[in-house]
Amino acid sequence: MGFFDYFKPVPIWTAEEVRAFLRERSAESYNLIDVRQPEEYEGGHLPGARLLPMAELKDRLGDLDRSKPTITY
């Protein structure tokens, strides 16, 4: 990641916008990431979301396909 990547704007979507996006796209066309703790994920998560807790995010960014849009919550 380069210096200027830190200044890229990250859009914030409402739940409705995310819902519409997920409805229109196939599951293989995006990364949907749950950054909470495993017990929170277990209690309920968006269908198809991958668990990638915040503390592990930096080390596991390589797991994500950078060519696809990524949604986190």
């Binding site: 914030i12 979507w13 739940a15 495993p38 998560h45 919550y73």
Partner: peptide, 19 residues
């Protein structure tokens, strides 16, 4: 996503990722 999971309002799956 604004508001995180609390804003999602339903249609959530349950169960442990590890499981």
């Amino acid at each position: 996503m604004e508001g995180g999971i609390d804003a999602w309002n339903g249609l959530a799956a349950g169960g442990a990722y590890e499981a």
